[in-house]
Design a protein around this nucleic acid. Structure first.
Lengths: 250, 250
DNA sequence: GCTGAATGTCACATTACTGTCACAAATCTT
DNA sequence: AAGATTTGTGACAGTAATGTGACATTCAGC
C-alpha cells in the first residue's frame, strides 16, 4: 500500500530555495524492496526534500494523483512491470510529461543504461550507490529542470546581463565571456561606482576557498576589457591606481 | 548544556573596527568535540571576536535565542543530527536566514564540500585547519556580509569627494588625482579652515612611518592646486607663510 | 588519449606616481 | 634696497603599480 514515509514532516518546514533548487521539492520514490525504499526515503528526507513512496505501479499513480512530484526515483525492476514501461507511460501523459525521472538499476551494463535513458529517464544510477551520489544526481536534475527563475537581469551602461541564461549583450549584440569574466562583470555591474581591491574581488568573485595570486585579477580584468572593447564598450572598468578597479558608466 | 566559553569576556573589550569588519562580531561555535570547541573558541577570542559555544543542536538554538550571532561555525557531524540539516533549518527561519555559516568538515572529499555549500553554507573549512586559515575565512565572510558601509561623502566649496568610489568632482565634472593628492585633498576637506604645518600634513597624509622631506609637501600642494585649477576651483588651498597651508572655501 | 577552452602564473613592457633637486619668485627683515 | 628666508615651479630619475603576451596546466567532452 502506498504511504508517506513516516519522517516526511520533519524537515519539510518551509519552501525555501537555494541556488534555484527548491529544497522542499517533492520526490516520489518508486521501489518495491522495503529496505531500499527505506534507505532512499531516509536519505532524501535527510537532505531536506519531501519524500513520497510507492512500492508498485498502482500506488505510484495514486501518489501522483494526490500530489504531483517534482522528481521520480524509479526502480528498474518492479512487480508486474518495469521502470522502462512506467517511464514511457509517464512521458505519454501531459501531467507527468515534464517530471524528471532517475532510474535505479542493479545491473551495470551499458545497454540497460542506454535503454533507460531512451525510455525517457533523465539520469540513471546503479545499485549499490552512495547517498552522496544519489543526492548529487537529484540536485543536478532538479537544478536542470528548475522552472526558469525570474531572471534578475542587470543592466548598466548599455550592457545587459542575464544571470540565468549566462549571457551578456551590448546593443543586442552578444558578448562572449568565460565563466570567470562573466562573474566578474556581474559583480561589477551590481556594484558599480565603487572601488574594489584585488583582495575584495578575489573574495567576491573567486570565493574564499581558492587562493590565487592577486595579479590574476589584473589578467582577468584585461580579458574582460578586451571582450568589452570588441563590443565598443570601452572605459567601463577603470583602474584606480593603488586601490583597485571600479566599474562606472562614465 | 550550552554555555559561554569561560574566556569570552577577556578579549571582547572594545568594539573597534578594522577594514570595515566589526571585530566585536559575535561568533557562534557549534561543535561537540570539547577539544576542538576549546581550540576554536580560543582562536576566535584571540582574534578579538566574541565567542558563543554550543555542543549540540538544542544548545545552538538556545544560544541563538539569547544572542543572535553574526556568524556561525557549524560542525559537519553533530550528535543526532548533521550540520547540513541545521544549516537548512537556519536558512528556513527569517531570524537566522542571513547569518553566514562556515561549515567545519573532517572529510576532504570534494562532493561533501559541494553538498555543504548547497545546503546553504557560505564557506567550509576542512579539519585540520590552521588558525590563520580559519580566521582568514571568518574575516572574509564577515567582510562580504557586512552591510555596505554608507559612503562618507565629503563636500566642501563646490567639491564632492567620495572615498568609496575614490572620486572627486566639481560641478559634476571629474577631477583626476593621484593617490597622494587624493588623500591630501580628503584630509583638507575634512579639516577645513585650519592651518596645518608641513610636519602635521606629513603625519596625517603620509603617515608617521615614512620620512620624506618637508618640501615634498609643497610639491604635492602644487600638484593638487594644478588639478583643482583645471576644474576652475582656484584659491581653495591657501599658503600661510611661516606656518603651512589651509583649506578654505573663501 | 586527444582537443580545445578556460584559467592561473610568470616575465617583461609600460605607465603613473613620487620624492628630490635646482632654481625662480615672492615675502620678510634690517 | 639688499640680503635672508620662505615658497612656487619645472624637470628628472627611481620606483612601484599596472598592462600585456606567452605559456603550462587543468578539465570537460569526445
Amino acid at each position: 500500500m502506498s504511504h508517506y514515509c513516516h519522517k516526511s514532516l520533519i524537515l519539510s518546514e518551509s519552501p525555501l530555495k537555494i541556488e534555484g533548487v527548491a529544497l522542499s521539492a517533492k520526490i516520489l520514490i518508486v521501489e518495491d524492496e522495503p529496505a531500499i525504499q527505506e534507505l532512499l526515503c531516509f536519505n532524501v528526507l535527510q537532505a531536506g526534500f519531501q519524500a513520497l513512496c510507492a512500492a508498485d505501479a498502482d500506488s505510484m499513480w495514486l501518489q501522483i494523483q494526490n500530489n504531483l512530484p517534482d522528481l521520480i526515483l524509479l526502480d528498474w525492476m518492479l512487480p508486474n512491470t518495469s521502470g522502462v514501461i512506467l517511464a514511457r507511460q509517464l512521458r505519454s501523459q501531459d501531467a507527468t510529461r515534464n517530471i524528471p525521472i532517475i532510474m535505479l538499476t542493479a545491473r551495470g551494463e551499458e545497454r540497460d543504461k542506454i535503454m533507460g535513458l531512451e525510455a525517457g529517464a533523465d539520469d540513471y544510477i546503479t545499485k549499490p550507490f552512495s547517498p552522496r551520489e544519489l543526492l548529487a544526481r537529484i540536485r543536478a536534475i532538479l537544478r536542470r529542470h528548475a522552472p526558469p527563475i525570474p531572471d534578475k537581469m542587470v543592466s548598466a551602461g548599455g550592457l545587459v546581463l542575464s544571470p540565468s541564461s549566462h549571457r551578456v549583450t551590448a546593443h543586442d549584440k552578444a558578448i562572449e565571456l568565460g565563466p570567470t569574466e562573466f562573474r566578474l562583470l556581474h559583480f561589477f555591474m551590481t556594484h558599480a561606482e565603487r572601488v574594489y581591491s584585488r583582495t575584495q574581488l578575489l573574495d567576491q568573485v573567486w570565493g574564499t576557498q581558492v587562493f590565487v595570486e592577486e595579479r590574476t585579477v589584473d589578467v582577468h580584468i584585461r580579458r574582460l576589457r578586451a571582450a568589452l572593447e570588441e563590443a565598443k564598450m570601452d572605459g567601463l572598468i577603470q583602474t584606480v591606481r593603488g586601490s583597485g578597479y571600479r566599474f562606472s558608466v562614465n
